[in-house]
């Protein structure tokens, strides 16, 4: 059992948890992930590490409540409680060094894993330009934290409810077009966002790193479910990644593989919501 040290609401669907796992906290580096399981019947959920405190033994993760397991976590797993399993750190850490000027693009939940990378890059001496965005204001988080570590921060929402109206790729293209020398780009977010960012940076020939969130079971190099195509070769996101050269990734395949269980995900969520509703009605009576 791994104690939930704290739980904080970042937006209507997004919550930040600090989980007590001292050995993971001690070893965790930006770009890596953990796998957690809520209970005996739970699935193994891979989540990127946001922060780790080796002194206090806490590992910070951010969860967006989109499916059955993440909804359940939001509804029933609170500070002081615990999750059954928590294993990590997994994956290869980000290559943090002083590149010069870097752009860090984060979309939606991708802002969470982006934050420690941007912070690491800043610490390593880079000039860091941040671009973060989400569909709307209530899905956006970590604006202050990103602001504190970025030399320049662009905030975007699809609907203009906060920051500028538009997509994260818009300021990315503008900066690259302005002929400022950009040495490297990190882009983390939904596959489609990473794909369009990669297309733009390819035009300007700027090395770009993406973090791929393919479907995994064990997350440790065993099942092969997370395989992605990079430079025409099959790679395993869990042990070869999760970060890869954006210009070599087959994003269409990634998106197709991510969608394979949509029907089952829907079914599990509906079943969960129906059961929750029934519970609520019983309690009302």
């Amino acid at each position: 059992m791994y104690t939930i040290l704290s739980k904080m609401t970042l937006s209507s669907q997004i919550r930040e948890y600090v989980i007590e796992a001292p050995e993971v906290a001690r070893a965790a580096k930006p770009g890596q992930f953990i796998v957690l399981r809520l209970h005996e019947r739970g699935e193994r959920i891979p989540l990127t590490i946001v922060d780790a405190d080796p002194q206090a033994g806490g590992v910070t993760i951010v969860v967006q409540e989109v499916g059955k397991s993440t909804r359940e976590m939001g509804d029933h797993f609170h500070a002081g409680g615990s999750v059954l399993d928590f294993a990590g750190p997994l994956g290869v850490p980000s290559e943090i060094e002083n590149y010069g000027t870097v752009i860090c693009v984060g979309g939606g939940l991708g802002i969470a894993p982006l934050y420690p990378i941007a912070r690491g890059l800043k610490k390593a001496g880079n000039t860091v330009i941040g671009i973060i965005g989400a569909r709307s204001k209530d899905l956006l988080f970590y604006i202050d934290r990103m602001d504190a570590i970025c030399d320049e921060l662009h905030v975007m929402t699809d609907d203009g409810s906060t920051g500028r109206k538009g997509f994260t790729v818009d300021p990315l293209r503008e900066i690259l077009s302005s002929r400022r020398k950009i040495d490297r780009v990190w882009a983390i977010g939904p596959a489609i966002m990473m794909k369009v960012c990669a297309e733009v940076t390819r035009e300007f020939d700027v090395p770009t790193v993406v973090s791929l969130n393919s479907i995994m079971i064990d997350g440790t190099g065993m099942c092969g479910g997370c395989r992605v195509e990079v430079g025409g070769e099959a790679k395993f996101a869990c042990v070869d990644g999760p970060e890869f050269d954006a210009h070599k990734v087959n994003f269409d395949l990634l998106m197709s593989r991510q969608s394979f269980y949509h029907e089952e995900e829907r079914c599990a969520l509906d079943r969960y919501l129906a059961a929750e509703k029934e519970k609520e009605q019983r309690e009302d009576r």
């Binding site: 019947r41 193994r44 397991s69 079971i217 394979f260 269980y261 089952e264 079914c267 599990a268 079943r271």
Partner: peptide, 9 residues
Amino acid sequence: FPEYDTPIK
């Protein structure tokens, strides 16, 4: 599944 959370197709 769906009693257990992990699906298979």
